[in-house]
Amino acid sequence: MLSLMIVDDSNIIRRKIERCNDSDKFRVVASAANGAEALDLFKQTRPQVVTMDLTMPEMDGIACIQQLMAMDSNLRILVISALSDKATGIEALKKGARGFLCKPFTDDQLLEALTELTDD
């Protein structure tokens, strides 16, 4: 069972991810609405897997990924974002995220992506 933190400024997306991850494989331990909150919650809950939105108020996803990776280089981060700018997505992966899922996504796509992300 892997612990999961959700970082997304949209309530709807957060709830969607929470809903489909209350499975026997992942356990949602934290849910953050922006980068700063994510860092706080990370320190408290130390999740193994993170889903990360890129465009958020206060601290954006890229900065957040950079800081999270500094704390735990083994952290598995899945970027979940709408595809307006591929270059930003690529930058996020260069900073240490390991996968990218494009919004909008179905529950199956999300589960599949998380499984692939944590499979090794």
Binding site: L83, K86, A87, I90, L93, G99, A113
Partner: peptide
Amino acid sequence: ETASDFIELLFDPKVKEKLIGDLNP
């Protein structure tokens, strides 16, 4: 440039190949 960056990602073994298809510029 974006394309070169993308290919560099493919050489990073930590990045999941299956999970970056959408980013192919």
